[in-house]
């Protein structure tokens, strides 16, 4: 009986120790990106934009040319790089503070121009690197370092839904929300990221994948409880679905 290798360490990821916390979703998404780079054979043409936040060191893991952006500016930096390196694959990796607070303008306008980039948005409803402050996606009532009595929408506004916001624009080609709280959803996320990158390779335009993710450390819960919280609290507010495909809004 011949043996078939069905799982191995992705070639496009460096074999180094992770700095991400136990139960964090970043490592899962990094692995998916690396697997997809291997499957599509694009490791030599991928340009990885790292944001400010926990994933600023993404270039230490993803084995591709990497560039670090200022906080919130990743879509603008990606725009400049892609306009020069037109035949490369630019992956713009961002967190919730980066994408929806300090970088709202850059996010909206890169999407509105239909930049030929792939935006991977990790939504874990909190600021990780700075130690657990309120994010634009923090849930109503959620306790963080800067909402010690729970997020009060009357005072600080409601959590922002990125996919729905960007879906009001004309230009985007593909918008989908996924999650990584269980294997089924991780597999769906992989499909979405792969599609978003393939779109760029095919010159289709702007693709956006939001991924609901866990931050057990700053939520102050064990990893499994964090995964459950994404499913039970985040998903009802941030529905998992494809909002736009092939430039057309989904029904």
């Amino acid at each position: 009986m011949s043996e078939e290798k069905i799982y191995s360490f992705p070639k496009s990821i460096r074999e180094v120790t992770t700095h991400y916390c136990a139960g964090c979703g970043h490592g899962i998404v990094h692995k998916l990106i690396a697997q997809i780079m291997d499957e599509l054979g694009i490791q030599e043409k991928t340009l990885m934009i790292a944001p400010v936040g926990c994933s600023v060191l993404a270039y230490n893991y993803i084995k591709a040319d990497g560039l670090e952006a200022a906080h919130g500016r990743a879509p603008a930096v990606s725009t400049g790089l892609k306009r020069v390196q037109k035949d490369k694959v630019v992956i713009c990796y961002q967190g919730d503070g980066d994408l929806l607070a300090i970088g709202t303008a850059e996010s909206v306008h890169a999407a509105n121009r239909g930049e030929h980039i792939t935006v991977i948005f990790i939504n874990n409803a909190i600021y990780g690197m700075t130690g657990g402050q309120m994010a634009p996606t923090t849930m109503e009532g959620q306790v963080t370092k800067t909402t010690p009595y729970g997020r009060d929408p009357k005072q600080v506004g409601w959590p922002i839904r990125a996919c729905e916001l960007l879906n009001t624009l004309e230009a985007p080609y593909y918008i989908e929300r996924c999650a990584v709280y269980d294997v089924k959803h991780i597999n769906q996320t992989k499909k979405a990221i792969k599609k978003a990158i393939q779109n760029q390779i095919d010159g289709k335009g702007y693709s956006f994948v939001e991924i609901l993710s866990m931050c057990p450390t700053n939520w102050g819960v064990e990893p499994q409880k964090a995964a459950d919280w994404v499913r039970d609290v985040m998903e009802p507010y941030y529905p998992i679905k494809c909002f736009r495909d092939g430039g057309e809004k989904t029904k």
Partner: peptide, 22 residues
């Protein structure tokens, strides 16, 4: 390529990206 950016912050970041691209 001429691009009118959404802000000065974005414009200089686009410059940074293009410069990194050589």
């Amino acid at each position: 390529t001429f691009l009118q950016a959404e802000s000065e912050l974005a414009a200089v970041s686009m410059v940074m990206g293009a410069s990194a691209g050589g």
